[in-house]
């Protein structure tokens, strides 16, 4: 038992674990909407765009969260408007805008070489980088996102299922979409220090698709995906401490393993069910 609790004597580990559980759950929760709307690419793109914003904020000595947040939100709005007003398709718009934004970040880093080390965390995630303030931010974002999803649950479900029809039934889908972009940007920024830009997309998608395999009910999918995200966050942190591998990579690898297992079990079950029907005929 002592061995189990041993890492908790370090403050950085307590902070890191708390943050990982919150971020894992948060990404799992939002991921359901991302996956069901086929927006995985936007999660991937936005996190890269935000990285550009983070570097700019750093160079200009703005507050990280403010700079990255504004930047991410602007990128999301820009993508939205490009798609709405031109013939450019969503994936192309996301590709151009977010990659250009990421490139700005990379360019700035290579120009001012001395920053390179501190951005390792933003790229690949690092528990050592998590401070008490970061945990507070993550907690606040999780609370806010949780509250928004709780109170707009029905509107969000309808918009995710069929935005055009939802509009006919009186859902203000444009407003919901904007709010969701905001929520996504906030979640990505909060997750950046823990998971790293390059791995956030995976943390958004994997718990949700794993949950989807396990249930046909939206409500249960939301709960399961959040739980899978939070639990893999917790266990991933532990593993990353003991095997000394980056926390983001550990969590994502753990999620991928869980997905693989669930996929195997559910397809075996399906096959067994099929055989059952066969023998009963």
């Amino acid at each position: 038992m002592d061995v189990f609790l041993q890492p908790f004597q370090f403050e950085f580990f307590r902070n890191g674990t708390l943050a990982a559980v919150l971020v894992g759950g948060l990404c799992g929760l939002i991921g359901v909407y991302i996956v069901l709307r086929g927006m995985s690419y936007i999660g991937h793109g936005l996190s890269h765009a935000i990285f550009g914003g983070a570097v700019v904020a750093f160079v200009m000595t703005w507050n990280f969260y403010l700079g990255a947040g504004l930047w991410g939100f602007l990128a999301a709005v820009l993508i939205n408007q490009t798609v709405r007003r031109t013939r450019i398709s969503a994936d192309a718009a996301i590709g151009v805008i977010t990659t250009a934004s990421f490139a700005i970040g990379v360019a700035l880093i290579s120009r001012y070489r001395r920053f390179t080390r501190s951005f390792d965390a933003a790229l690949f995630g690092n528990i050592l980088g998590v401070t008490g303030q970061d945990v507070l931010v993550v907690a606040a974002v999780t609370l806010m996102v949780g509250a928004i999803i709780f109170f707009l649950y029905k509107q969000l479900l309808f918009t995710t299922f069929d935005a055009e029809v939802a509009q006919v039934y009186g859902v203000k889908t444009e407003w919901i979409d904007t709010l969701f972009s905001l929520v996504l940007a906030a979640a990505l920024i909060a997750s950046m220090q823990i998971l790293g830009v390059t791995l956030i997309a995976a943390a958004l998608v994997i718990p949700a698709i794993t949950a989807r395999l396990l249930t046909d009910s939206f409500n249960r999918m939301i709960v399961l995906s959040t739980l899978i995200g939070a639990v893999t966050g917790l266990i991933g942190m532990y593993l990353s401490y003991y095997v000394d591998v980056s926390s983001g990579a550990t969590i994502v690898l753990l999620q991928a393993t869980a997905f693989g297992l669930v996929l195997m079990i559910t397809s075996l079950q399906k096959r067994a069910a099929r055989r059952l029907i066969h023998t009963h005929l």
Partner: peptide, 26 residues
């Protein structure tokens, strides 16, 4: 509004009751 059935995402995880409830969203 009842859209053309072809436009519905049949893989979306919702039950009959959940779909019908959407009509009362407001």
């Amino acid at each position: 509004y009842v859209p053309q059935l072809e436009s519905v995402d049949w893989n979306f995880p919702v039950t009959v009751e959940q779909v019908v409830l959407m009509g009362r969203v407001r």
